[in-house]
């Protein structure tokens, strides 16, 4: 089985750089590229009754939007390069879900972009890249 590289992609500029970097790596070692997008979600958040009622519909809408606006364009861009590509679209805690995806694919590497800020919030609660580096099942590359 070919090696796999999981790259976290959310449409931001740094995630674009991460994607380019990961695509280059994958091409160099002949690995499959797994493009993963995680929608932030906690089953322990609080919702109003109206939000509960509409949740199933919203979820379908959100998944469809992520697929068409984020995943489809980059897959199309990379389609011509001959690279083998898989995609993952999941709900959950971002770092934890990326780890789960990496484990499921038995990925040899995880690549993620760095947001570049070091504001108060990320100092207090940690950043996605930071927590990912601590808990990932495979080596992590953080692309600045």
């Amino acid at each position: 089985m070919a090696e796999k590289i999981v790259v976290g992609y959310d449409g931001s500029e740094s995630s674009h750089r991460a994607l380019t970097f990961a695509a280059d790596r994958a091409r160099a070692i002949g690995a499959t590229l797994v493009i993963a997008h995680v929608l932030e979600w906690s089953p322990y958040s609080f919702l109003t009754p109206t939000e509960l009622e509409e949740r199933h519909k919203r979820r379908s809408d959100e998944l469809a939007r992520a697929e068409s606006a984020l995943i489809a364009p980059v897959v199309k861009d990379l389609a011509g390069s001959g690279l083998s590509i898989e995609t993952e679209l999941k709900y959950g805690h971002i770092a934890e879900t990326l780890c789960k995806i990496a484990s499921e694919h038995q990925a040899s590497q995880v690549v993620i972009g760095r947001t570049g800020h070091s504001n108060m919030a990320s100092r207090l609660f940690g950043s996605v890249a930071g927590s990912l580096a601590q808990i990932a099942p495979a080596p992590v590359t953080i692309v600045p």
């Binding site: 929608l39 979600w41 089953p43 958040s45 919702l47 509960l52 949740r55 199933h56 959100e62 959950g92």
Partner: peptide, 17 residues
Amino acid sequence: SDPNDAGEVSHFQALAT
């Protein structure tokens, strides 16, 4: 809870509301 149902209304959320 099935992890593939993440993003749907959880038991916790229904109870909390």
